[in-house]
């Protein structure tokens, strides 16, 4: 029972912190993007515009809630909250420090991948239930992309699992703490696996350069075309929470999690690494262009899948003969 109470209380704290960080990361992103484009970004609400996310939410709450006449109302209304739940659900198995974790499952990595894989279902459902051609096209793209990038994502996540000999994320971090971070040694396995993991995770969260499901120049707003007000905001939030949680997973699997190298380990290292990676993803987002659908598939099947299979095989050889 104590495990249940522990999981519930830490889960509540983690979810609250995640949502708050997500809200203010919107402000951070807008400021960063503005700096990159020689603009000022939000300045009016609060000091340096920091209260802008709160103003945005208040505005969205007042919007009219529209359900298209020929839409499938149940699925249409169900999709946005399910998207958020899937995105937050991943966080349950991510250890932020040896104690700050909702449930350090012995199948942790598998759980994270499973819930991550399901995130495409609400996106697809939204696309279909909207009864809108553009939304449907966006949904189909999302499915094709997610099914393809699932393969390199799973294979890249398998590399730290093989090296550490456990699927418990806490044990993987502990292994890196006792030996080396996987991006440091064996770096020829760690770095490529980390890069592939981050790319595939961007594709799964439908972020630029992989945001073809909502390519606004072709599909208006893709699956979110018909959504208004808070329901639209929920999709937006799901995307950001997914990226944030995936950054945390990547930090734990490859960057040593709560281990601080020569310094005292602790929660702050995990938070720092996660936010650093998250900010890096914003940088990518505002730098790169969107891929075309066929380029996306070519990158996945021609390059990422074969190289990740090679990485997994090499990791096995490495563990048997060296590690």
């Amino acid at each position: 029972m104590s495990g249940f109470v522990h999981g519930l209380s830490y889960g509540a704290v983690i979810v609250t912190v995640l949502m708050t960080v997500t809200a203010f990361s919107l402000w951070f992103e807008r400021k960063l993007a503005a700096r990159m484009q020689s603009r000022l970004g939000p300045t009016l609400v609060g000091p340096a515009g920091i209260l802008q996310p709160i103003a945005d939410v208040l505005k969205l709450l007042q919007k009219e809630d529209i359900v298209p006449l020929k839409a499938d109302a149940v699925l249409f209304n169900l999709a946005p909250p399910v998207a958020v739940v899937c995105a937050i659900g991943v966080a349950a198995a991510v250890p932020f420090s040896p104690t700050v974790v909702a449930a350090d499952l012995d199948v942790g990595v598998l759980y994270v991948l499973a819930i991550g894989a399901v995130t495409v279902l609400p996106v697809f459902t939204a696309g279909w239930a909207s009864n809108n051609k553009l939304a449907l096209l966006g949904g189909m793209r999302a499915v094709a992309q997610s099914v393809s990038y699932e393969v390199p994502l799973v294979l890249a996540a398998l590399v730290p699992v093989i090296l550490a000999g456990s699927m418990r994320i806490g044990a993987i971090v502990q292994f890196q703490s006792d030996h080396h971070w996987f991006v440091a040694w064996p770096f020829f396995l760690g770095i490529p696996a980390f890069v592939i993991f981050v790319l595939a995770m961007l594709a799964e969260a439908n972020r630029i350069p992989f945001d073809i499901p909502e390519a606004e120049s072709e599909l208006v707003a893709g699956v979110t075309t018909e959504y208004t007000g808070m329901k639209f905001a929920l999709f937006y939030m799901a995307e950001y929470v997914h990226t944030l949680v995936a950054s945390a997973v990547a930090s734990a699997l490859f960057l040593g999690g709560w281990d601080g190298g020569p310094f005292r380990p602790g929660l702050h290292w995990m938070v720092l690494k996660t936010l650093f990676l998250f900010a890096g993803l914003y940088w990518i987002r505002w730098t790169l262009l969107r891929f075309r659908s066929d380029q996306l598939m070519r990158l996945c099947w021609r390059y990422l899948v074969p190289s990740s299979i090679a990485l997994v095989a090499t990791a096995g050889v490495w563990v048997v003969f060296v590690g």
């Binding site: 499973a114 894989a117 399901v118 279902l121 697809f124 099914v147």
Partner: peptide
């Protein structure tokens, strides 16, 4: 979840 809900149902 991974195999049935995540992969097979998506297909």
């Amino acid at each position: 979840i991974l195999v049935y809900a995540g992969a097979i149902m998506v297909l």
